[in-house]
């Protein structure tokens, strides 16, 4: 994951909606992209976003075909349809610290720090972290991890059945 941290983005994204957090939080997320035996395989678009009740959902990461000329890869972002509706359509892509290239099958680890880049500083409460994958000429699947952030530690795991393998998160301060 090539996350480029930008001070401006931190200020813009981190402020307001998840206010009040003081200390650095570390979110470790592992996303397994399954190897599929299909005639035509394209690496999936994958979106990761976080929701707290009553707050605007926040995109943590979106892997898409960034390298295409003239931003043509953005044309298919809407196929990651739940993310597109919840958070994607409100954003602009590519986005610093959020968008990255698509990834090959395997386990992918993301480490995010609260209040830096795309990751907001989390206030205590109930959260949902969604991982949604959509594959060209293939299927779509979303895995939702629910966790309760008490300010100290949280973890959750889930798994998809088709387009996503195991997804795990740990959050600590």
């Amino acid at each position: 994951m090539q996350i480029r941290f930008s001070g401006i983005a931190v200020a813009a994204i981190g402020a307001g909606l998840f206010p009040g957090a003081a200390h650095a939080q570390t979110l470790e997320l592992t996303i397994n992209v399954p190897r599929l035996k299909v005639a035509e395989y394209h690496k999936p678009y994958v979106a990761v976003w976080i929701e707290k009740e009553g707050a605007t959902p926040r995109t943590l990461s979106i892997w898409y075909d960034q390298a295409k000329a003239k931003g043509e890869g953005t044309k298919w972002l809407r196929d990651v349809r739940q993310w597109w509706r919840a958070a994607g359509r409100a954003g602009k892509f590519p986005a610093d610290g959020v968008s990255g290239a698509t990834r090959a099958p395997g386990a992918h680890k993301l480490t995010l720090t609260g209040g830096r880049g795309a990751m907001p500083a989390l206030t205590p409460g109930k959260y949902k972290l969604h991982v949604e994958a959509a594959r060209e000429t293939g299927g779509r699947e979303m895995v939702t991890l629910e966790f309760n952030w008490d300010g100290k530690a949280a973890s959750a795991r889930g798994a998809g059945t088709a387009e996503l393998g195991a997804v795990t998160l740990t959050l600590k301060r």
Binding site: K70, G71, E72, T74, K75, W76, L77, R78, R81, W84, G88, R89
Partner: peptide
């Protein structure tokens, strides 16, 4: 009816 990007 729903498209993403800026040139479709």
């Amino acid at each position: 009816t729903v498209v993403s990007g800026d040139d479709n």
